[in-house]
Design a protein around this nucleic acid. Structure first.
Length: 418
DNA sequence: AACGCAGGCAACCGCCGCCCC
DNA sequence: GGGGGCGGCGGTTGCCTGCGT
């Protein structure tokens, strides 16, 4: 324990880096790679410790860093991820291409915390401040529960944020009392009116969901090979977040996949099959839940990578999230809207595909030879089978820099959304 | 112009876990 | 098994800058 050995060395510079030092470090790493960080300063001719060099490279000099202010989308994603992961900045950063944990941490401490408080949300517990004020003891327990849960992702349980909604015009959140002490996802984007007007209306929740898909697997990473299923059974997203099923859609699995299958207690769809979601719902779900609920079942993608790993947005025959088979919970709101007003509000999966899905840090990107091509660096997010602009381009750039190839998402298990 | 303050940000510190010998 | 080296992470510090008075 204690100080890193290099820190004992004398005559090492500290503090801000000069442009000359930056240049030396860049030249060295560009030419030779960093290898062992402790040897970098000597080889690069720097009077710094290896740790300092590493930090400077990772946080500032890396070519794939996205400089500049965070987008609203990124902020929202950070908040959502923080609700799940807590202060695990590196894991959060792994979900945001080109951003560093340090950058995100700074943003959180300097900006997001304040914004959340202004909106009546406690940034550490992600619960309404009013609730905390009204019942400190209960809130304390909740906080403890949250910490416990975030310390063990396998036990995370999302609770429906009841009818929390965000009044975009007043920037106020009107939460109702939650029904559980579990992690409470209730974060509409922290958007001001101008940003709301300028930004696309799509949600990041679907990205978040998919990222969780991967992160969850990473959490139980050591069992990745043994257990091809990702467990989402404990995810229970509320009306503003989550995945629901479109009863009119077919779940279609790419015929090129060798062993695509749906496995559940209720049915198994064999290879190359097409499963009617509405049939499924009507057969096993209570009538009240048929429209947009999805009972627990598992989806196994043993050959996912065959169809989705080339960063080329291939649409060669219908991958899992095509065909509007699954839609995000906003559709639920559309149904509610329709029920209330009699006016259809057409929210389709495709509209939620305006930004690409992101596959997160857990999948180390593997080159065609099966080697992790960038060693320790957190894997970058890769474009995922959707057309899109900014984010995707940035991810593409990051991907090209490292020439990485997404290896695969072996399986997914979807939980109940009700 | 000078001063104080707050916010943003880069960098450091201390600890932890993994790996190797 | 234990100790050292090392990378990684989260918390914290301190500098710089912009803004208000």
């Amino acid at each position: 324990m204690g100080r890193h050995s290099c820190c004992y060395k004398q005559k090492l510079r500290k503090g801000l880096w000069s442009p000359e030092e930056d240049e030396k470090l860049i030249k060295h790493i560009t030419k030779f790679g960093h290898g062992c960080w402790s040897s970098v300063p000597k080889l690069a001719g720097l009077q710094r410790c290896g740790k300092s060099c590493r930090l400077r490279w990772i946080n500032y000099l890396r070519p794939d860093l996205k400089r500049g202010t965070f987008s609203q989308e990124e902020e929202s994603l950070i908040i959502e991820l923080h609700a799940v992961l807590g202060n695990r900045w590196s894991q959060i950063a792994a979900q945001l291409p080109g951003r560093t944990d340090n950058e995100i941490k700074n943003l959180w401490n300097s900006s997001i915390k304040k914004k959340l408080r202004q909106r009546g949300i406690d940034p550490s517990t992600h619960k309404p401040l009013s609730e905390l004020d009204n019942n400190d003891e209960k809130a304390s327990n909740n906080s403890k529960n949250n910490n416990d849960k975030t310390s063990d992702l396998s036990e995370i349980s999302f609770v429906e944020p009841t009818s929390t909604h965000h009044d975009i015009n007043s920037n106020n959140i009107h939460p109702e009392k939650p029904t559980s002490s579990a992690v409470d996802i209730r974060y509409p984007p922290l958007i001001d009116n101008a940003a709301a007007a300028a930004a696309p209306s799509n949600s990041t929740h679907h990205e978040f969901f998919l990222n969780r898909l991967v992160a969850t697997q990473e959490t139980s990473s050591n069992s990745k090979a043994a257990d091809p299923f990702l467990s989402f059974q404990q995810l229970n997203y509320g009306p503003n977040i989550g995945l629901s099923i479109n009863p009119n859609a077919n779940i279609f699995f790419n015929s090129a996949s060798k062993q695509s299958e749906i496995i559940s207690d209720h049915f198994t769809a064999a290879n190359n099959s097409m499963v009617s979601a509405s049939n499924y719902c009507s057969s096993i779900l209570p009538a009240s839940n048929r429209v947009n609920s999805l009972a627990p079942f598992s989806v196994k993608f043993e050959n996912w990578d065959n169809n989705n790993n080339n960063n080329n947005n291939n649409n060669n025959g219908g991958s899992f999230f095509e065909n509007n088979a699954f839609t995000w919970a906003a559709e639920k709101e559309a149904h509610a809207h329709t029920a209330e007003t009699g006016m259809p509000e057409d929210i389709k999966w495709s509209e939620y595909m305006q930004t690409p899905f992101l596959l997160g840090n857990s999948i180390h990107n593997i080159n065609p030879a099966g080697q992790d091509v960038y060693g320790e660096t957190p894997a970058k997010l890769m474009p995922f089978a959707a057309e899109g602009g900014g984010w995707q381009q940035q991810q593409q750039q990051a991907a090209e820099i490292y020439s990485k190839h997404f290896q695969g998402l072996p399986a997914a298990t979807f939980g109940q959304f009700s």
